[in-house]
Design a protein around this nucleic acid. Structure first.
Lengths: 359, 359
DNA sequence: TTGTAGGCGTTATCAT
DNA sequence: ATGATAACGCCTACAA
């Protein structure tokens, strides 16, 4: 902590050149065992560790990958009972990076500082994993022009004709939604189901709607041409959408929501309309955020394997960094059905994998 | 992502010198608004972000702090219900770092790779926060000779005469233990209490024992000269210690353990001896690890404010980095009493702060 | 307000 | 197996 010696000092004291010191510290080859020991010894003696900055500059590789995630749960209260899914992603990313000899730099974007933070991080890493809802699409596109990027659990709405988006890792939206819908039909006997879609153009929402339709088709039920209602991926959006749905006189037996937040809003709107959940209407979400478990009734939903997603995204990023000029990849991991009170299930149960599908 | 342009390219296209570009990107001063816009524009156009490595090398500051934590919960199963305390620390550290313009690099040490990992990280950061049980004392001492270090929730056993240990941030061990002991006495009427100490020389254990004694003194109860038993800070250690205690014929009404893991082991030993908890013996821990809540009976314990500890340690580290030559600092945060079944309390309750004490 | 130029501590290429 | 030495891309006095 005192002096901060350099490779020159170590080389001099070891009686070798800096090149040799560099080789030894890189665990490379081209030196005798004796030399190795000598160098390691003086390095320890001087408490010297190679400067990551100098290394990164010379080798054009920092050995660091960045993980950008949204600063949700701003609440941050110690009472939080549920494992925040972001934490799982972080741990998964750390594990994958460490086992590859890299380290993970983390950054939480609050809507205010997001952009600047992300660019600042971009300069310090070899590549970026960007978690859903961390940044607006524009910023992601901009970032992906500066460093390799892997999108996690989200996709760019507009991955146009000539623009090839970043690599992608996500959960099986279609399969998860299909499994949930099939559950409502097969286990709870619903025949009149409504899908509450997220914002138009959201790939997540579209895939989930597709899964919903597939399940109806599987069961021989009539398949809607479009979602019963649409709203933003927020509580307000869900509440509003359900209010409108009810206003049309529609009374579905089950409402499959595009995500948990919409489902939470749906619960509110239903309560206001004096409809009981799940007695009168079943409600389901997607994501399994912490609030889903705490909701009354507890929300049945579809969980994404966040830890695996974190691991997978870092592995994909590292392979991209190693080989920049390969085709865009996309990995889809299976989801888990989480059934709670809101669909009439007594307690949580877990299904097997929802199946895998290609990207 | 394609080309990776440099400051020279940006300077040339903007018709200014690299020095000016540097000033603009550092949000410094000494340039006209027009120049600023021009530079920012070409930077964006080229998707250029300053290289962190080059910056770090020239400025002798990476803008990154490292956080080293133990890879506990190796289990890593998605079923984990409780917020892992490490995650809270990570989030707190991230928040404090980001708000200071820095980023956080995380690394989980598994007993195997620990040392190498830590040194690799040390080279990439301006300083290190090292969480309890991440590394053996020797490694911590070695690291602290290479970079500024803040110890979190742990302290070096041997901070000898001439060796000044690293800065420290932790919870109020003494106050927390005292509050728990006082609770056992005042609320549950215990008068025969035993303290199960951790390994000799552990500052944590010693402080907790001191708090235990203080509470006895406060209540006018006889104060033991030494802990009733001693063991390592593990389940095995706790089990063994209680077995020995019982073998001596001692039958305390309450056993205050040095940490949660020992308490868990104590539970096992007590069960083996056919003593009921809490009916025959009350048992308490310290830390509030995830397993404490799941134990049967659920373990009463003392929780450390991990998120705040994370924030605090990063702030302290940054101030240390800014001013290396100031006296060693040590910050103590208040703890929380968490009462569950193992002390006869029906459900959890939370006390106010345990008070603050100087380092 | 802006430019010049010397480092910063490694790695990597060529030699030897 | 080892050594010289030119990058690497930026910052920061010092000048202008």
């Amino acid at each position: 902590m005192a002096d901060r010696s350099t490779i020159y000092e170590v080389a001099r004291r070891s009686g070798v050149s800096t090149a040799t010191v560099s080789r030894v510290m890189a665990d490379g080859t081209g030196f005798s065992a004796a030399t190795r020991e000598r160098v390691k010894a003086t390095a320890a003696e001087l408490s010297w560790v190679p400067s990551g900055s100098a290394r990164g500059l010379a080798a054009r590789r920092t050995g660091i990958v960045g993980l950008i995630f949204p600063d949700l749960g701003q609440s941050g209260d110690a009472e939080e009972e549920s494992p925040l899914y972001v934490d799982q992603v972080i741990r998964g990313a750390e594990r994958a990076a460490t086992s590859a000899g890299d380290a993970v730099l983390i950054a939480a974007t609050s809507t205010a500082s997001g952009r600047d933070l992300a660019f600042s991080v971009a300069g310090k890493v070899d590549g970026l994993v960007i978690l859903a809802r961390s940044l607006p699409d524009d910023d992601i596109v901009a970032l992906s022009r500066s460093v390799p990027v892997v999108l996690l659990a989200t996709n760019l709405a507009r991955s146009g004709p000539d623009f090839v988006g970043p690599d992608f890792v996500g959960a099986d939206n279609r399969g998860g939604s299909r499994a949930m819908t099939a559950h409502l039909i097969a286990v709870h006997g619903h025949t009149d189901l409504a899908f509450l879609a997220g914002p138009a153009g959201s790939p997540d929402s579209e895939e989930r709607f597709a899964g919903f339709c597939a399940a109806l088709r599987d069961a021989g039920l009539p398949e809607p041409a479009a979602p019963a209602a649409t709203g933003s991926f927020t509580e307000a959006g869900g509440e509003q959408a359900v209010r409108e749905l009810i206003a049309t006189g529609r009374r579905p037996g089950a409402i499959v929501c595009g995500n948990d937040e919409m489902a939470l809003g749906a619960l509110t709107a239903l309560r206001a309309a004096e409809l009981r959940v799940p007695a009168d209407v079943a409600v389901t979400g997607f994501d399994d955020i912490a609030a889903a478990r705490r909701a009354r009734p507890a929300l049945s939903t579809v969980r994404q394997p966040m830890r695996e997603l974190g691991e997978c995204s870092v592995r994909l990023l590292l392979s991209r960094i190693a080989a920049a000029d390969t085709a865009r990849k996309s990995v889809v991991l299976p989801t888990e059905l989480v059934t709670r009170r809101s669909c009439s299930c007594a307690s949580r149960a877990v299904s097997g994998p929802s199946g895998r599908s290609p990207g």
